[in-house]
């Protein structure tokens, strides 16, 4: 396949944009979850609205809105920034709910002990809550990563030459669309499977070290 390098370049674009969105989306989701968990007035409701609307929006619609719509409100974005922003906004909403579920479920007993020992709320969060909550959230967070990668083909419509667009271009040039799309499918599957394997590995490690209790 002479076009393989071009395809792999597209795969690299997909992977790098996805990784940036994932890396930023996890802490952003946590920040949003904390706002709701702490019931900060006004901000809490805004976050709830944001999460509700973004989770209902298809990735492709969001991408089109951000890339083509932003100039209308005075913001000029290049395609790559718009792409990262799209995936970031999308994943942060889902991550917020994941973190929030873990925070709500967190045993009050341990918090009571932390307070009794004179830990300030910030210290208690950093040393007691966060280390445990990230372990509970990990499977769901990795699942969301796979969903992000599976949604990333949406970026092809805003001019990013990601894996999907690369396959599309090759198909257009060679008049044989099926082979490049099949190859692209395989590459996507490998990316997703990599994440799934990593998740199972981490789950096992956490279970062995800290027990199921």
């Amino acid at each position: 396949m002479p076009y393989l390098p071009f395809l792999l370049q597209g795969a690299l674009v997909t992977a790098s944009i996805s990784l940036v969105a994932i890396a930023l989306g996890i802490p952003l989701g946590l920040a949003l979850a904390i706002v709701r968990w702490q019931r900060i007035p006004l901000l809490s409701q805004l976050v709830a609205l944001y999460v509700s609307v973004v989770r209902a929006t298809p990735a492709i619609t969001l991408a089109l809105l951000i890339f083509f719509g932003s100039p209308s409100i005075g913001i000029v974005l290049d395609a790559t920034t718009a792409a990262i922003l799209t995936l970031l906004i999308n994943t942060s909403a889902f991550n917020c709910e994941i973190w929030r579920a873990a925070l709500i479920d967190f045993p009050r007993d341990q918090l009571e002990a932390a307070r009794a020992y004179g830990m300030s709320p910030g210290l208690a969060f950093r040393r007691v809550i966060l280390p445990q909550v990230w372990r509970t959230s990990l499977p769901a967070l990795v699942n969301e990563m796979t969903l992000l990668v599976k949604a990333s083909p949406a970026l092809a419509v805003i001019g990013i030459v990601d894996l999907t667009r690369a396959a599309s271009r090759i198909g257009a040039a060679t008049y044989r669309p099926l082979p490049p799309f099949l190859a692209a499918t395989v590459i996507y599957m490998l990316m997703v499977m990599l994440l799934v394997v990593a998740q199972r590995h981490v789950e096992r490690m956490v279970r062995e070290r800290y027990g199921t209790g």
């Binding site: 796979t146 990668v149 599976k150 949604a151 990333s152 083909p153 949406a154 092809a156 999907t164 396959a167 599309s168 198909g171 669309p177 099926l178 799309f181 099949l182 692209a184 499918t185 996507y188 599957m189 997703v192 499977m193 799934v196």
Partner: peptide
């Protein structure tokens, strides 16, 4: 493991 858009393309061209 497959993104839906890719699958749609495969069906469309396949």
């Amino acid at each position: 493991c497959v993104p839906f858009l890719l699958f749609a393309y495969l069906v469309y061209y396949g």
